[in-house]
């Protein structure tokens, strides 16, 4: 059994990875190699991130690819405009 904190650590590592490399396109096995983690836990973490819609998941199983979904950004919200 994998400790929950390990999955969360990996979730956060993956999040940081994609924030730092926003145009990375990764499979769970590819990313697990980059991060030096087990493929199984990496996949678990990636799927959770996809559920949170931090990542976009294409395909299923081992061939599924993940990429970062940029959050919704508004750089100039005018406070004085009408809602």
């Amino acid at each position: 059994m994998v400790a929950e904190s390990d999955v969360i650590t990996l979730q956060m590592e993956c999040t940081l990875f994609f924030e730092n490399n926003p145009y990375a396109i990764e499979t769970s096995s590819g990313l697990s190699k980059r991060l030096g983690r087990s493929q199984q836990v990496t996949e678990q973490a990636l799927n959770r991130l996809a559920e949170m819609s931090i990542l976009e998941k294409n395909g299923q199983g081992m061939r599924a690819i993940y990429r970062y979904k940029a959050p919704y950004i508004q750089t100039e919200v005018d406070l004085n405009a009408y809602d």
Partner: peptide, 26 residues
């Protein structure tokens, strides 16, 4: 990248190939 003039993409070779061959792939 912010100006949409560049993308630095990392992926595995087989994924690139797969996505390139796929119509409307990534």
């Amino acid at each position: 990248e912010r100006q949409n003039k560049l993308r630095v993409i990392c992926m595995e070779p087989d994924i690139l190939l797969e996505q390139m061959l796929q119509p409307h792939g990534l």
